[in-house]
């Protein structure tokens, strides 16, 4: 294992510190606190709080700022934050209009956010992100897990919250968004959890894992490595099978790298995905390409498609100023 770190147990805190140092104009990390919050809170707006295990950078801390999250609680690597931590973050950014939690659907995240919610007594709702389409429904009754689509949910809810939407309306938007956002991923390698020093699993040089999450865990099936066009066709067809047909056919596409995927490959995948999506009759009108929802040093990528309508598209285009996503200001 080779990483630019000091002691494995200090990675999360030191990395958050570095993030705050390099973005001190927009972010605050309270020393010792394990959450990041916006430097300037929007009074009277619903507070948008998310979080989860670390190792998915820039998710979630990199999405804190104007037009997106108000706070992000970062747990240990791949470990949901604890309820006390979540409560502290909520209390730091709640300004009276209530709080909306964005939670990726993992047993750990759900349980810790649930416990936190039970400990708070102001208005609080949560949106569960369930965009991954790779998990077979049989056997699991708690729904799909949340992966890269979380970014899209956070960006669009963040824009609406910034415009002053009330909690109830945000909930309706959030649930609609989750229903219209689906993802599927492929891994070329696993990743190394720093405290473990060896990769979570090994893949041969001619293999890939299809249907992976964002924790370096095994996927649904191990298959022979294929070329970019074939991978794109497969991911896109799986994703589209799970999306309700949309009227306009307009779509937002996220080509997301898992942390160790060079941009040259992600750009190339954008071309392959674009072909597959158009072939299926959709019109990709917005693109985001980069390493945004990662699994430490895992190589591979996921494709997320969100069906757009005029409202959602306008919210996507609305100004955002975070460390990892910025436009319009």
């Amino acid at each position: 294992m080779k990483k630019l770190i000091n002691r494995p147990e200090d990675i999360v805190a030191e990395s958050l510190e570095g993030l705050a140092i390099s973005h001190s104009d927009i972010l605050v990390v309270q020393p010792g606190a394990r959450f990041v919050r916006r430097r300037t809170l929007g009074r009277g707006k619903v507070a948008l709080v998310s979080g989860g295990g670390s190792g998915h950078d820039p998710l979630h801390a990199g999405f804190v700022g104007k037009g997106m999250l108000d706070a992000a609680c970062m747990g240990e690597i791949f470990t949901s934050p604890t309820p006390d931590q979540i409560v502290a973050a909520i209390n730091a950014v709640e300004t009276g209009a209530g709080t909306l939690l964005v939670v990726k659907n993992y047993d750990g995240d759900v349980m810790n956010f649930d416990m936190a919610a039970e400990m708070c007594d102001h208005a609080l709702r949560s949106i569960l992100v369930t965009d991954d389409v790779s998990i077979p429904i049989d056997g699991r009754s708690t729904g799909a897990r949340g992966v890269a689509g979380t970014l899209i949910v956070e960006k669009i809810l963040g824009a609406a919250a910034e415009m002053g939407w009330p909690l109830d309306r945000l909930m309706i938007l959030g649930e609609r968004l989750v229903a219209q956002t689906k993802s599927m991923g492929v891994a070329l390698t696993s990743c190394t959890v720093p405290a473990n020093r060896t990769p979570t699993f090994e893949l041969n040089d001619d293999e890939m894992e299809l249907g992976v999450g964002i924790h370096g865990e095994r996927g649904q099936t191990r298959v022979k490595l294929d070329n970019a066009d074939a991978i794109a066709r497969h991911l896109v067809s799986k994703v589209l099978q799970c999306l309700p047909v949309s009227e306009s056919g307009d779509a937002l596409i996220l080509i997301n790298g898992f942390g160790a995927t060079p941009l040259i490959e992600l750009n190339l995948m954008a071309r392959s995905v674009d072909q597959a999506v158009r072939h299926a009759g959709l019109r990709p009108v917005r693109y985001l390409v980069g390493n945004y929802v990662t699994a430490l040093d895992m190589a591979g990528c996921s494709v997320t498609i969100t069906l757009l309508d005029a409202e959602i598209e306008a919210l996507w285009d609305a100004p955002v100023h975070t460390s990892a996503l910025r436009w319009g200001c």
Binding site: G53, G75, E76, S80, P81, T82, G108, N112
Partner: peptide, 12 residues
Amino acid sequence: LVMNIGGAAGPI
């Protein structure tokens, strides 16, 4: 345990 483990094991 709840305040230090996190993940699934902490709440459980």
